[in-house]
Write a protein that binds this DNA or RNA. Structure first.
Length: 319
DNA sequence: AACATTTGCAACCGCACTCGG
DNA sequence: CCCGAGTGCGGTTGCAAATGT
Protein backbone atom coordinates (compact mmCIF):
# COMPACT_ATOMS: atom_id res chain seq x y z
CA UNK A 1 0.00 0.00 0.00
CA UNK A 2 1.26 3.44 0.82
CA UNK A 3 0.81 6.67 -0.97
CA UNK A 4 3.84 6.71 -3.16
CA UNK A 5 2.42 9.57 -5.19
CA UNK A 6 2.79 11.74 -2.12
CA UNK A 7 6.23 10.59 -1.20
CA UNK A 8 9.21 12.76 -1.84
CA UNK A 9 10.67 10.16 -4.20
CA UNK A 10 7.92 10.75 -6.71
CA UNK A 11 8.31 14.49 -6.81
CA UNK A 12 10.80 15.87 -9.24
CA UNK A 13 13.13 18.68 -8.32
CA UNK A 14 12.72 18.34 -4.58
CA UNK A 15 15.73 18.59 -2.38
CA UNK A 16 16.58 15.85 0.08
CA UNK A 17 19.06 15.48 2.90
CA UNK A 18 20.01 17.80 5.74
CA UNK A 19 18.22 21.11 6.05
CA UNK A 20 20.20 24.33 5.73
CA UNK A 21 19.74 27.25 8.16
CA UNK A 22 18.20 29.25 5.30
CA UNK A 23 15.60 26.56 4.68
CA UNK A 24 14.85 26.36 8.37
CA UNK A 25 14.35 30.10 8.48
CA UNK A 26 11.98 30.02 5.51
CA UNK A 27 9.88 27.25 7.01
CA UNK A 28 9.85 28.78 10.46
CA UNK A 29 8.86 32.21 9.17
CA UNK A 30 6.10 30.81 7.01
CA UNK A 31 4.56 28.63 9.71
CA UNK A 32 4.76 31.39 12.28
CA UNK A 33 2.99 33.76 9.94
CA UNK A 34 0.43 31.52 8.25
CA UNK A 35 0.35 28.28 10.20
CA UNK A 36 1.17 25.08 8.39
CA UNK A 37 -2.30 24.30 7.06
CA UNK A 38 -1.84 21.84 4.24
CA UNK A 39 1.66 20.44 4.26
CA UNK A 40 1.46 19.36 0.64
CA UNK A 41 1.01 22.88 -0.63
CA UNK A 42 3.25 24.53 1.95
CA UNK A 43 6.63 24.11 0.24
CA UNK A 44 5.47 25.98 -2.86
CA UNK A 45 3.89 28.77 -0.84
CA UNK A 46 6.96 29.04 1.39
CA UNK A 47 9.38 28.93 -1.53
CA UNK A 48 11.01 25.69 -0.45
CA UNK A 49 12.36 22.99 -2.78
CA UNK A 50 11.19 20.30 -0.40
CA UNK A 51 8.25 17.93 -0.30
CA UNK A 52 5.49 18.57 2.21
CA UNK A 53 6.33 15.49 4.16
CA UNK A 54 9.89 16.63 4.66
CA UNK A 55 8.67 20.06 5.81
CA UNK A 56 6.24 18.54 8.25
CA UNK A 57 8.95 16.30 9.70
CA UNK A 58 11.42 19.13 10.02
CA UNK A 59 8.86 21.28 11.80
CA UNK A 60 7.65 18.51 14.05
CA UNK A 61 11.07 17.20 15.08
CA UNK A 62 13.20 20.30 15.09
CA UNK A 63 11.66 23.72 14.46
CA UNK A 64 8.60 23.66 16.73
CA UNK A 65 9.09 26.22 19.48
CA UNK A 66 7.92 23.88 22.25
CA UNK A 67 10.72 21.35 21.90
CA UNK A 68 13.15 20.60 24.67
CA UNK A 69 16.54 19.46 23.49
CA UNK A 70 19.56 18.22 25.35
CA UNK A 71 20.25 15.45 27.81
CA UNK A 72 17.49 13.29 29.19
CA UNK A 73 17.01 13.43 32.94
CA UNK A 74 16.99 10.37 35.16
CA UNK A 75 13.25 10.73 35.54
CA UNK A 76 12.82 10.84 31.77
CA UNK A 77 14.99 7.72 31.48
CA UNK A 78 12.80 5.94 33.98
CA UNK A 79 9.64 7.11 32.28
CA UNK A 80 10.78 5.84 28.89
CA UNK A 81 11.86 2.47 30.26
CA UNK A 82 8.67 2.01 32.21
CA UNK A 83 6.41 3.07 29.39
CA UNK A 84 8.31 1.00 26.87
CA UNK A 85 7.74 -2.02 29.09
CA UNK A 86 4.05 -1.24 29.14
CA UNK A 87 3.47 0.01 25.61
CA UNK A 88 6.28 -1.46 23.53
CA UNK A 89 7.53 0.51 20.53
CA UNK A 90 4.59 2.90 20.57
CA UNK A 91 6.79 5.94 20.57
CA UNK A 92 4.08 8.51 20.12
CA UNK A 93 2.24 7.14 23.15
CA UNK A 94 5.44 7.13 25.17
CA UNK A 95 6.29 10.65 24.07
CA UNK A 96 2.89 11.85 25.25
CA UNK A 97 4.24 11.38 28.78
CA UNK A 98 7.42 13.32 28.05
CA UNK A 99 6.52 16.97 27.60
CA UNK A 100 8.43 18.81 24.90
CA UNK A 101 10.22 15.72 23.62
CA UNK A 102 9.65 14.38 20.12
CA UNK A 103 8.89 10.78 19.31
CA UNK A 104 11.87 10.63 16.97
CA UNK A 105 14.18 11.84 19.73
CA UNK A 106 12.78 9.36 22.25
CA UNK A 107 13.04 6.56 19.72
CA UNK A 108 16.65 7.42 18.92
CA UNK A 109 17.49 7.73 22.59
CA UNK A 110 16.02 4.31 23.27
CA UNK A 111 17.93 2.63 20.48
CA UNK A 112 21.23 4.36 21.17
CA UNK A 113 21.30 4.37 24.98
CA UNK A 114 18.53 2.80 27.00
CA UNK A 115 18.26 -0.44 25.08
CA UNK A 116 21.98 -1.05 25.51
CA UNK A 117 21.83 -0.15 29.16
CA UNK A 118 19.10 -2.71 29.73
CA UNK A 119 21.02 -5.34 27.81
CA UNK A 120 24.15 -4.65 29.84
CA UNK A 121 22.21 -5.24 33.02
CA UNK A 122 21.03 -8.57 31.71
CA UNK A 123 17.51 -7.60 30.74
CA UNK A 124 15.85 -8.30 27.47
CA UNK A 125 15.08 -4.85 26.00
CA UNK A 126 12.01 -6.26 24.30
CA UNK A 127 10.33 -8.06 27.19
CA UNK A 128 12.05 -6.10 30.00
CA UNK A 129 12.56 -9.35 31.81
CA UNK A 130 15.83 -10.95 32.84
CA UNK A 131 17.28 -12.92 30.00
CA UNK A 132 16.48 -16.58 30.66
CA UNK A 133 17.48 -19.93 29.35
CA UNK A 134 15.01 -22.43 28.02
CA UNK A 135 14.84 -23.81 31.55
CA UNK A 136 13.62 -20.53 32.93
CA UNK A 137 16.77 -19.60 34.90
CA UNK A 138 17.98 -16.06 34.69
CA UNK A 139 21.38 -15.91 33.02
CA UNK A 140 24.15 -15.90 35.54
CA UNK A 141 21.81 -15.95 38.46
CA UNK A 142 20.72 -18.49 41.00
CA UNK A 143 17.05 -17.69 40.58
CA UNK A 144 14.72 -20.58 40.78
CA UNK A 145 12.90 -21.64 37.65
CA UNK A 146 9.37 -20.38 37.28
CA UNK A 147 6.93 -22.52 39.16
CA UNK A 148 3.41 -23.22 38.03
CA UNK A 149 2.07 -20.66 40.43
CA UNK A 150 4.52 -18.05 39.24
CA UNK A 151 3.46 -18.59 35.66
CA UNK A 152 -0.14 -18.41 36.68
CA UNK A 153 0.58 -15.19 38.53
CA UNK A 154 2.26 -13.68 35.48
CA UNK A 155 -0.66 -14.73 33.32
CA UNK A 156 -3.01 -12.94 35.71
CA UNK A 157 -0.88 -9.82 35.56
CA UNK A 158 -0.82 -9.91 31.80
CA UNK A 159 -4.55 -10.42 31.61
CA UNK A 160 -5.17 -7.48 33.92
CA UNK A 161 -2.79 -5.34 31.94
CA UNK A 162 -4.53 -6.09 28.67
CA UNK A 163 -7.90 -5.30 30.20
CA UNK A 164 -6.62 -2.03 31.58
CA UNK A 165 -5.03 -1.05 28.30
CA UNK A 166 -8.18 -1.87 26.36
CA UNK A 167 -10.22 0.22 28.73
CA UNK A 168 -7.73 3.03 28.55
CA UNK A 169 -7.93 3.08 24.76
CA UNK A 170 -11.72 2.96 24.88
CA UNK A 171 -11.90 5.78 27.41
CA UNK A 172 -9.46 7.86 25.44
CA UNK A 173 -11.61 7.48 22.36
CA UNK A 174 -14.76 8.38 24.27
CA UNK A 175 -13.14 11.43 25.78
CA UNK A 176 -11.73 12.49 22.46
CA UNK A 177 -15.19 12.31 20.90
CA UNK A 178 -16.88 13.95 23.85
CA UNK A 179 -14.57 16.90 24.33
CA UNK A 180 -12.31 17.08 21.27
CA UNK A 181 -10.85 20.40 22.39
CA UNK A 182 -7.74 19.66 20.40
CA UNK A 183 -6.76 19.34 16.86
CA UNK A 184 -6.53 15.66 15.93
CA UNK A 185 -3.03 16.37 14.74
CA UNK A 186 -1.91 17.04 18.27
CA UNK A 187 -2.75 14.01 20.31
CA UNK A 188 0.44 14.49 22.27
CA UNK A 189 -0.71 17.84 23.51
CA UNK A 190 -4.10 16.40 24.37
CA UNK A 191 -2.55 13.61 26.39
CA UNK A 192 -0.31 16.07 28.17
CA UNK A 193 -3.29 18.09 29.19
CA UNK A 194 -5.26 15.08 30.33
CA UNK A 195 -2.34 13.99 32.40
CA UNK A 196 -1.75 17.43 33.81
CA UNK A 197 1.68 17.78 32.25
CA UNK A 198 1.04 20.86 30.21
CA UNK A 199 0.96 23.81 32.54
CA UNK A 200 0.20 26.17 29.65
CA UNK A 201 -3.35 24.94 29.49
CA UNK A 202 -4.10 25.29 33.16
CA UNK A 203 -5.95 22.83 35.33
CA UNK A 204 -8.08 20.31 33.54
CA UNK A 205 -11.05 21.45 35.60
CA UNK A 206 -10.81 24.82 33.91
CA UNK A 207 -10.56 23.20 30.55
CA UNK A 208 -13.38 20.70 30.90
CA UNK A 209 -15.52 22.16 33.65
CA UNK A 210 -17.88 19.67 35.26
CA UNK A 211 -17.20 17.13 32.52
CA UNK A 212 -13.56 16.71 33.34
CA UNK A 213 -12.42 13.21 32.39
CA UNK A 214 -11.05 11.20 35.24
CA UNK A 215 -7.64 10.09 34.16
CA UNK A 216 -4.73 8.97 36.24
CA UNK A 217 -1.14 9.58 35.44
CA UNK A 218 0.06 6.12 36.28
CA UNK A 219 3.64 7.17 36.64
CA UNK A 220 2.91 9.91 39.11
CA UNK A 221 0.66 7.56 40.99
CA UNK A 222 3.26 4.89 41.19
CA UNK A 223 5.94 7.32 42.24
CA UNK A 224 3.65 8.57 44.99
CA UNK A 225 3.15 5.06 46.24
CA UNK A 226 6.83 4.28 46.13
CA UNK A 227 7.62 7.54 47.90
CA UNK A 228 5.11 6.82 50.57
CA UNK A 229 6.21 3.25 51.07
CA UNK A 230 9.86 4.05 51.01
CA UNK A 231 9.48 6.93 53.42
CA UNK A 232 7.92 4.59 55.94
CA UNK A 233 10.60 1.99 55.46
CA UNK A 234 13.58 4.33 55.36
CA UNK A 235 12.73 6.84 58.01
CA UNK A 236 11.23 9.44 55.76
CA UNK A 237 14.08 9.71 53.27
CA UNK A 238 12.69 9.96 49.79
CA UNK A 239 15.62 10.23 47.47
CA UNK A 240 14.64 8.73 44.16
CA UNK A 241 17.90 6.91 43.58
CA UNK A 242 17.63 5.12 46.86
CA UNK A 243 14.51 3.29 45.77
CA UNK A 244 16.47 0.79 43.79
CA UNK A 245 18.74 -0.17 46.61
CA UNK A 246 15.88 -0.45 49.01
CA UNK A 247 13.65 -2.43 46.73
CA UNK A 248 16.09 -4.57 44.83
CA UNK A 249 16.15 -7.41 47.30
CA UNK A 250 12.68 -7.93 48.58
CA UNK A 251 10.36 -5.91 46.42
CA UNK A 252 7.05 -7.38 45.46
CA UNK A 253 4.35 -5.63 43.48
CA UNK A 254 1.84 -4.22 45.92
CA UNK A 255 -1.87 -4.39 45.43
CA UNK A 256 -3.26 -0.92 45.16
CA UNK A 257 -6.74 0.20 45.91
CA UNK A 258 -8.02 3.72 45.59
CA UNK A 259 -11.05 4.97 47.42
CA UNK A 260 -12.75 8.30 46.98
CA UNK A 261 -13.74 10.59 49.80
CA UNK A 262 -17.21 9.06 49.68
CA UNK A 263 -15.80 5.59 50.01
CA UNK A 264 -16.38 4.15 46.52
CA UNK A 265 -13.80 1.60 45.52
CA UNK A 266 -11.75 1.67 42.34
CA UNK A 267 -10.95 -1.32 40.23
CA UNK A 268 -7.25 -1.94 40.20
CA UNK A 269 -5.08 -3.16 37.40
CA UNK A 270 -1.43 -3.91 37.46
CA UNK A 271 1.27 -4.77 35.10
CA UNK A 272 4.10 -6.85 36.36
CA UNK A 273 7.03 -6.96 36.05
CA UNK A 274 7.58 -4.01 33.78
CA UNK A 275 9.94 -1.08 34.08
CA UNK A 276 13.47 -1.74 35.12
CA UNK A 277 15.06 1.29 36.70
CA UNK A 278 18.71 1.52 37.42
CA UNK A 279 20.15 2.81 40.60
CA UNK A 280 23.10 4.80 39.36
CA UNK A 281 24.70 4.87 42.80
CA UNK A 282 24.60 1.19 43.55
CA UNK A 283 24.46 -0.39 40.12
CA UNK A 284 21.39 -2.37 41.01
CA UNK A 285 18.15 -2.61 39.15
CA UNK A 286 14.61 -2.71 40.34
CA UNK A 287 11.36 -3.78 38.86
CA UNK A 288 8.41 -1.45 39.12
CA UNK A 289 4.93 -2.63 38.27
CA UNK A 290 2.43 -0.25 36.79
CA UNK A 291 -0.91 0.37 38.32
CA UNK A 292 -3.74 1.67 36.25
CA UNK A 293 -6.58 2.56 38.52
CA UNK A 294 -10.06 2.71 37.07
CA UNK A 295 -13.37 3.67 38.58
CA UNK A 296 -15.26 0.54 39.52
CA UNK A 297 -18.57 1.77 38.13
CA UNK A 298 -17.84 3.76 35.01
CA UNK A 299 -14.40 2.54 34.04
CA UNK A 300 -12.94 6.02 33.93
CA UNK A 301 -9.41 6.65 35.12
CA UNK A 302 -8.67 8.79 38.08
CA UNK A 303 -7.74 12.26 37.02
CA UNK A 304 -6.15 13.66 40.07
CA UNK A 305 -4.37 11.18 42.21
CA UNK A 306 -4.17 13.67 45.04
CA UNK A 307 -7.93 13.65 45.46
CA UNK A 308 -8.04 9.99 46.33
CA UNK A 309 -6.80 7.99 49.21
CA UNK A 310 -4.52 5.24 48.09
CA UNK A 311 -4.33 2.09 50.12
CA UNK A 312 -1.33 -0.14 49.71
CA UNK A 313 -1.71 -3.78 50.35
CA UNK A 314 0.93 -6.44 50.28
CA UNK A 315 -0.11 -10.02 50.44
CA UNK A 316 -3.64 -8.84 51.14
CA UNK A 317 -2.52 -6.98 54.24
CA UNK A 318 -3.01 -3.24 54.34
CA UNK A 319 0.22 -1.45 55.20
C1' DA B 1 48.96 10.53 11.74
C1' DA B 2 46.09 7.52 9.19
C1' DC B 3 42.70 4.40 8.84
C1' DA B 4 38.82 1.53 10.69
C1' DT B 5 35.03 1.08 13.50
C1' DT B 6 31.37 2.69 16.36
C1' DT B 7 27.98 5.95 17.80
C1' DG B 8 24.34 9.37 17.65
C1' DC B 9 20.85 11.40 15.37
C1' DA B 10 18.46 13.81 11.51
C1' DA B 11 15.98 12.51 7.81
C1' DC B 12 13.76 9.32 4.78
C1' DC B 13 10.58 5.53 3.54
C1' DG B 14 6.51 3.12 3.32
C1' DC B 15 2.46 1.27 5.55
C1' DA B 16 -1.77 2.35 8.07
C1' DC B 17 -5.24 5.24 9.34
C1' DT B 18 -8.78 9.06 9.01
C1' DC B 19 -11.73 11.83 6.56
C1' DG B 20 -14.33 13.92 2.99
C1' DG B 21 -16.35 13.67 -1.57
C1' DC C 1 -19.23 1.57 0.18
C1' DC C 2 -15.32 3.09 -2.46
C1' DC C 3 -11.52 5.93 -3.46
C1' DG C 4 -8.07 9.37 -3.10
C1' DA C 5 -5.80 13.03 -0.35
C1' DG C 6 -3.55 14.03 3.68
C1' DT C 7 -1.35 12.76 7.86
C1' DG C 8 0.61 9.77 11.72
C1' DC C 9 3.78 6.57 13.01
C1' DG C 10 7.53 3.20 13.45
C1' DG C 11 11.41 1.12 11.07
C1' DT C 12 15.46 2.07 8.60
C1' DT C 13 19.18 4.56 6.42
C1' DG C 14 22.99 7.63 5.77
C1' DC C 15 26.38 10.51 7.34
C1' DA C 16 29.23 13.27 10.44
C1' DA C 17 31.58 13.04 14.70
C1' DA C 18 33.79 10.42 18.10
C1' DT C 19 36.56 6.73 19.42
C1' DG C 20 39.66 2.88 18.86
C1' DT C 21 43.68 0.56 16.74
Amino acid sequence: MGKSTHDCVASSGVKKGPWTPAEDQKLLAFVQKHGHGNWQSLPQKAGLQRCGKSCRLRWRNYLRPDIKRGNFSLLEDQTIIQLHALLGNRWSAITAHLPKRTDNEVKNYWHSRLKKRLALKGYDPVTHKPKTTIFGFANGSTDEPKTGSNLNHIAQWESARLQAEARFVRDSELHKQAYHPYNNNDISAASSILLGHNKDFGPTDQLFGQNAPQCLDILRAWESILMSNHSKAAGGQDHVNSFGNHLAGDFEPPIISAISSNGSLMDCFFHEPVGQCFDENYGTSITEPFATVHHKNNGACLEDFGLWEIIMQREKKIV
